[in-house]
């Protein structure tokens, strides 16, 4: 998953928590679309096809990283199966093109996109490891063109992405969350569903592809939302998430500030790219 999606998940949670300044979603959409156009143009210059992709294949995870807790959304969308399917279709053209290339051309396509194996870009992750990435491919070139400093953008975006994962981990392991999740499980059982944990239950539901899948999704998702309220899992998760987000933001203030500064500086460039490209990729 590319960086904008990771940021999107982070943003969704932070905005939901209501406690931490976060980049606004429309701005992220603009940046993502511009980055995709820049990658497309870079690939085209090397003789390859690349069509801009949607920002996320699973918007439901952005909306509900812990548990589906919006009953009306669940009633209308189930688990977001239709939206996932639409986004998959939007992302399929480049994959189809790539799949039809001879093997050697596929290697060349990947080299054009990712660059080589060397780690020209580096970021020290907060939970260990120094992740590397080539600075030679079209992905890195797009970061340079958009953010003006691919090295700094890679560093702070990878770190803040990792902090988003840490925050979800901290929340999910908190004993108050665990207790609420157990109440949620009991509630789901009473509703007729054997659910281990909300996200895996959602995944399990989405794996079913029968003709009545969407109707089953809606029934399950509505039970999930009702139980999220009854068990207070929704409230507990949001409160803990907000507290953990706040603590991490204080600890890694410099990285968050730098990421936001780079985004703000990139926005005019992104709008210019989109204007010039007349690209109309549907935003997420």
């Amino acid at each position: 998953m590319r960086a904008p999606l990771r940021v999107g998940i982070l943003v969704a949670v932070l905005m939901g928590s209501g406690c931490t300044p976060a980049p606004d979603k429309p701005a992220l959409d603009v940046l993502h679309r511009a980055e995709e156009v820049l990658v497309r143009d870079c690939m085209a210059r090397q003789g390859f096809t690349y069509e801009p992709r949607p920002r996320t294949p699973a918007p439901d995870v952005e909306r509900f990283p812990y548990v589906v807790d919006d009953l009306e959304w669940a009633r209308a969308n189930g688990y977001g199966r239709a939206e996932r399917r639409q986004l998959e279709q939007e992302a399929s053209s480049t994959a189809s093109y790539y799949g039809g290339l001879p093997k050697e051309q596929q290697k060349a396509w990947l080299a054009a996109y990712h660059g080589d194996r060397a780690s020209g870009l580096k970021a020290d992750l907060p939970f260990g490891g120094t992740v590397g990435h080539s600075d030679q491919g079209c992905a890195a070139r797009a970061w340079q063109d958009l953010y003006g400093d691919m090295r700094e953008w890679f560093r702070v975006s990878r770190i803040t992405d990792a902090l988003g994962q840490m925050r979800v981990g901290q929340t999910s392991r908190d004993e108050r969350y665990v207790a609420a999740r157990k109440r949620w499980q009991e509630c789901m059982s009473a509703e007729g569903f054997a659910a281990g944990a909300p996200l895996s239950f959602r995944i399990q539901q989405l794996e079913y592809e029968g003709a009545d899948a969407e109707a089953r999704d809606r029934a399950a998702a509505m039970s999930e939302a009702r139980c999220a309220a009854r068990s207070e899992l929704s409230t507990v998760a949001r409160q803990l998430d907000a507290a953990n987000a706040s603590a991490l933001e204080k600890k890694y203030r410099a990285e968050y500030d730098t990421a936001e500064r780079l985004r703000q500086a990139a926005l005019p460039r992104a709008r210019d790219v989109l204007t010039r490209s007349s690209d109309h990729l549907v935003s997420q």
Binding site: F127, G132, G137, Q165, R173
Partner: peptide, 22 residues
């Protein structure tokens, strides 16, 4: 992540996610 490279020899990468409560 997609496109990323890890040199593990410094022993700094760790298993950071796990199953639990199943």
């Amino acid at each position: 992540g997609n496109g990323d490279f890890w040199n593990l020899r410094e022993d700094d990468y760790v298993f950071s996610w796990t199953h639990a409560h199943d």
